[in-house]
Amino acid sequence: MLNIAVLVSGGGTNLQALIDAQATGQIQNGAISLVISSRTDAFALERAKKAGIPTRVLLRKGFAEQADYDAALLALLKEFQIQLVVLAGFMTIISETVIRQYENQIINVHPALIPSFCGPGFYGLHVHEAALEKGVKVSGATVHFVNEVCDGGPIILQKAVEVLPDDTPETLQRRIMEQAEWKLLPRAVELFCAGKIVVENGRTRILD
Rank of each mutant, 00 (worst) to 15 (best):
K159W: 04
I93N: 08
E79H: 11
R205F: 00
N147D: 15
W182A: 11
R60A: 05
A180G: 09
V143M: 06
R205P: 01
E103C: 06
L185I: 09
G89H: 03
F117A: 03
C150E: 11
G10L: 02
K61E: 13
N14K: 01
L125N: 12
V127G: 01
Q173F: 00
Q22R: 09
L191R: 06
L184M: 10
A130Y: 06
G119L: 03
Q101M: 09
F122M: 15
I155M: 13
L45F: 06
S37F: 08
N3K: 15
T97F: 00
I93T: 07
I99F: 08
E96D: 14
T97A: 13
S139F: 03
I155S: 12
A71T: 09
G11M: 06
E190G: 02
R60L: 12
G52Q: 03
D68N: 13
A17H: 06
L18Y: 03
L34F: 05
G10M: 05
D41A: 05
V149S: 14
R203Q: 14
E190V: 00
Q66V: 02
G195D: 11
P154D: 05
G153F: 04
P115H: 10
G152F: 02
E129Q: 15
F43C: 03
V109G: 12
P111G: 04
T97G: 02
N147Y: 10
Q66T: 05
M91A: 07
I19C: 11
A17L: 07
G12H: 04
N201A: 10
L15H: 12
V138N: 14
R187C: 05
